[in-house]
Design a protein around this nucleic acid. Structure first.
Lengths: 204, 204
DNA sequence: AAATATAATGAACACTGTTTATTAAATCCA
DNA sequence: TGGATTTAATAAACAGTGTTCATTATATTT
């Protein structure tokens, strides 16, 4: 009975088509401009059809987010290559900044906007970020373990590094850093200097 | 000719009424649930009337934001009272965390959501945050000046402290810190510990 | 080939921000 | 004071949103 298998495959293909269209539009035009109708237009189906494959927009965004987190994890795997833990940490944080700058709209979806993370309530809730976060945790963990940075608690160390980078990125993405009377060209420089300074400061 | 003056006063009063209604609804129900129609309902006017006093929703949100920033500045003035620069810095950062927790939706409007800061393009663009930011800058500045923290550049120091706190707050507000397999009760504790650790780390 | 199950859709609902033509009220001027 | 004029408020509409549902078209099964 290969029909049910084929149907399942077709269903998966359709979901892929929807997610691909959605993520393309996100990267190109940003969260605000992506509507169900736009996506439906792009894949040449009626808006109602999307609701045969996703129960609502949040469920779709959840898949888009999963894809985005996978790309971040891949980004890390490509750029975090050193054997030295401190060097690895440096590469990881800097490639995090790079990712945020290259894919602003994905970063937005992953870490800033409200939907869908706080609405989706299934058991494997955080599988999305697990991979990328795991790499951060392992890298920071190695530094703590070997006494290379001024932390004793793994979680505090990991969250601190993440929060520091995210704080700069999100204040910048939302144009709040400008409150400090900085012009736009200076911001990336100041950001890198600040992150560099932070990494220097936490070194033993 | 007191009529034009009275008219101006009435216009200002109407704007106040609109902003007050809006900010009340923000605090109570959050950004998502506040629509022009809701505000109009609350002040018992037609939606179209609001457009006689604000050219669009962004312009209204800008005023709401200004009010929110003023409240943060007042919050600082109340809680940042020590003469010792390091103690002041501690009080400021901790009261920032408090403010974010007590007025989540205001914090959202001020630092996280997209509108209206990146759309409003008038000259006195950042007057909104100037007061609160000024207090942060002065406090951090005093610490740098007296060689109490491991920074030489004032701006880097100020932005670093801010970004660190904001990073934790916003990751928490958007439920991203949960990626680290933490349950909700632990997060405020971990946040305070991390911030405390950070302030300890930057001390000379 | 007819009956049944599945897939896709057009049209509608309730909402959003915003604009415009119309009505009501206040002010001005003779 | 009474009529003309300016100002204020609104109802209704437009184009957009997410979402649902009855209806139609297409596969699959018998």
């Amino acid at each position: 009975m290969g029909i049910t298998e084929r149907k399942e495959r077709e269903k998966a293909e359709m979901r892929r088509r929807i997610v691909d269209a959605a993520i393309d539009m996100f990267v190109a035009e940003g969260y605000e401009k992506v509507s169900i109708r736009n996506i439906a237009d792009k894949i040449e189906y009626s808006p109602a059809t999307i609701y045969l494959y996703y129960k609502d927009k949040d469920e779709l965004l959840y898949d888009v987010q999963a894809e985005a987190f996978q790309r971040l994890a891949d980004h890390f795997r490509t750029h975090v290559v050193s054997e030295d833990p401190l060097e690895r940490l440096h590469q990881l944080v800097m490639s995090y900044l790079d990712f945020a700058r290259e894919y602003e709209e994905l970063y937005d979806l992953m870490f800033i906007i409200k939907a869908p993370m706080n609405t989706v309530e299934n058991e494997d809730k955080w599988d999305n970020g697990e991979d990328a976060f795991g790499q951060l945790r392992d890298t920071v963990g190695a530094c703590v373990e070997k006494g290379l940075i001024r932390f004793t608690d793994h979680m505090i160390a990991t969250l601190s590094v993440w929060a520091f980078a995210h704080g700069f990125i999100s204040l910048n993405l939302r144009c709040r850093i400008n409150i400090a009377e900085l012009n736009e060209e200076n911001i990336p420089i100041i950001m890198r200097q600040s992150v560099q300074h932070y990494l220097d400061t936490i070194k033993v």
